[in-house]
Design a protein around this nucleic acid. Structure first.
Lengths: 249, 249
DNA sequence: TATCCATTTTGATTCAGATCAATCAAAGCA
DNA sequence: TGCTTTGATTGATCTGAATCAAAATGGATA
């Protein structure tokens, strides 16, 4: 259902970075590059930037210059309408690439806000396009990342268009679980970085509904909730929750 | 709100195509290329393909080879879950590019089905990547198209996550209206190519709700509905319908 | 430590949209 | 020409989530 933008499941352990300002190893871009190519890429990834919890990485309407690769931390992206309506379009963690939406018009179409102190590498997009001409595998990889974002969004559309509250939450938790696992963390126990309201915005639900769905899953002993701390007790049953509204008793 | 994938609002009238099999002029790709570059691109756009109404352009799970640029006609794309749940992810018309989701894994992640007899140009993706290395403006443009698709999807997410039935339908109609206008057709009068059920699937509503929303807008004299034929009587009021659930009486 | 504010949980009530069902219209076909 | 199928409309009823409201919890800070 929900997938994500990074390619961390690919093996990048063989890559050594020679970039001074920013360890390329941790980025999602250098997959499959040789030593020399990584060096070229290193020159592109110009600078490291820190964003405090609550701070903006970029704002809607501002000029687009660079993509941002998350080195550490946790961010949300959200779009807002003129009438004040707001929607969280994604939660983003280490290794993922932000700013892809802005390529279209050279203007950022969403806000990116840190949900905890975060660190990103800035990747000037013009330079990235430039060198991707000489490194086909980099270009290829970049296209896959963009495409993956489209696939992810289609998954969210399916979720928003056809799932019930509890299914949406199950889907959301399983998505987080898998992404934590891919990064070497526990898949069954983690801390949420976002509020119930932010989860609700992402899932198209009100915060009270999110809270009730948490409580319901806890009552069924599928998860244990302690405020932001989540323990998944029964991954299998959580998966069942996600995908069978139509055939459940 | 809902945007689309093409770049037809850009002026491409100066472009003359020398491609035998397929008039490039109508595609979304050759924007801003010179004569010689268009010729190079022409060699890439290998073949024209017809898809009958109801026929598949591509199916979920099949190997990805090519993007498809729509020359004429109207198609829908839809994703489906193992449990049979289905969701229309988009409606696509002349000049738009299909298949972007498949770049990610080299496998199509959605079905593309013609809603009327359609014609597409097949663009082998490997070749497109190849020549985009030598034509920077083409690469640039391709990136913008992908990014635009992401922005479009975010718009749909906002719609599905926070709009009421009537607002969703208004947004949908306005989106179609604008796209018809861009292609030189009437913005106030057109025929829908899809059923109420398909509209419902796209908008996260049941077909009865779509039908009721049509009737409601008609009762208010904002549109006139005759089965698939839609006349927009008051574009301004339709726009108001779209964006003010929170502040309306 | 006490206070304040944000967040979360839970309950009661309401409502928009789903569901169930009937009717109607148009299109294809024997 | 009647028959069947598909799609659209409309009505009645039901239900899941929103809304309104209150209480509980937690974290930050003076």
């Amino acid at each position: 259902m929900l997938s994500d933008t990074s390619l961390h499941h690919l093996d990048i352990s063989h890559i050594r970075s020679s970039c001074a300002s920013c360890s390329l190893r941790e980025l999602c871009l250098p997959v499959g590059l040789n030593e020399q190519e990584v060096q070229v890429l290193g020159d592109v990834v110009s600078s490291k930037r820190k964003v405090q919890r609550g701070g903006y990485l970029h704002r809607t309407g501002t000029k687009f210059q660079s993509l941002f690769a998350i080195r550490s931390g946790f961010l949300k992206t959200c779009v807002l309408e003129q009438d004040g309506r707001q929607q969280v379009t994604g939660f983003h963690m280490t290794g993922e690439l932000l700013g892809l939406d802005a390529i279209s018009t050279d203007i950022h179409t969403c806000d990116a806000i840190a949900l905890e102190d975060s660190e990103v590498c800035e990747i000037p997009f013009a330079k990235l396009e430039e060198i991707s001409r000489t490194i086909p595998s980099l270009m290829r990889h970049f296209h896959k990342i963009m495409s993956r974002e489209i696939v992810r969004d289609h998954g969210v559309m399916l979720l928003l268009g056809s799932m019930k509250a509890e299914e949406r939450l199950a889907s959301f938790l399983l998505n987080l679980s898998r992404r934590f696992l891919m990064r070497g963390y526990s898949e069954s126990e983690f801390n949420l970085r976002m509020t119930r309201e932010e989860i609700g915005s992402y899932l198209g639900l009100k915060l009270e509904t999110v809270s009730r769905a948490f409580s319901k899953l806890q009552d069924e002993n599928i998860i244990t909730v302690d405020n932001k701390h989540i323990q998944i007790n029964d991954l299998a049953r959580l998966k069942i929750k996600m995908g069978n509204s139509s055939c459940v008793t």
